[in-house]
């Protein structure tokens, strides 16, 4: 199997590795880098449990080859907020009981980061469509929607405070 050298930034750290051409990014992150917060829930790009940020956009890491991520800047759930602190979305999921088993949660949160970046003040309907590439079997989504709403408010406040 052909090997390729790739270099990328993950959660602020530069990483260089030799990888097989077929290695999926989600496996690279989980197995090679031992960051297991990014999950795998399907084999057809439907569940979104593997969602990460790649160059600022939410991407399903199970459908992305590691070699294609050469040169990219990646954020996973582990790097979303400095150790010991919460991103407003993490805080909101806690406050609004937006998680049960937690398996979909990292993907949901990473997807929502992108959603709020593009639409800082989404309606309930926009949130529902915005996270419709991510499946949750536990929560029934009501509280995930509320979590995203709370985070949107918090982030708007933070933004106001910084201008």
């Amino acid at each position: 199997m052909a090997k390729h050298e790739v270099t990328m930034t993950i959660n602020g750290q530069s990483v260089t590795a030799e990888v097989d051409s077929r290695l999926l990014l989600v496996h690279f992150i989980r197995e090679n880098l031992d960051m297991t917060g990014t999950h795998i829930g399907c084999d057809t790009s439907n569940c979104g449990a593997c969602t990460i940020l790649l160059d600022g956009k939410s991407v399903k890491a199970c459908t992305y080859l590691t070699v294609r991520a050469d040169g990219a800047e990646i954020t996973t759930i582990e790097g979303l907020a400095p150790e010991g602190t919460n991103h407003p979305l993490q805080q909101a999921f806690h406050d609004q009981h937006g998680l049960h088993c937690g398996f979909c949660t990292p993907g949901m949160i990473m997807r929502s980061v992108d959603l709020l970046k593009n639409n800082p003040n989404p309606t309930e309907e926009e949130i529902r469509w915005g996270i419709s590439g991510n499946l949750c079997r536990c929560t029934g989504y009501n509280n995930i929607v509320k979590s995203v709403q709370q985070a949107a408010k918090e982030m708007a406040k933070e933004k106001e405070a910084t201008v």
Binding site: E31, M35, T36, T38, H39, I77, E78, H94, G102
Partner: peptide, 21 residues
């Protein structure tokens, strides 16, 4: 009361079977 177990899941520190190595 808010859930005590949330923090590890929110930070990608849950430990599911596939996470064991």
């Amino acid at each position: 009361v808010k859930r005590k177990e949330d923090a590890r899941f929110l930070h990608g520190k849950g430990n599911y079977v596939d996470d064991t190595k």
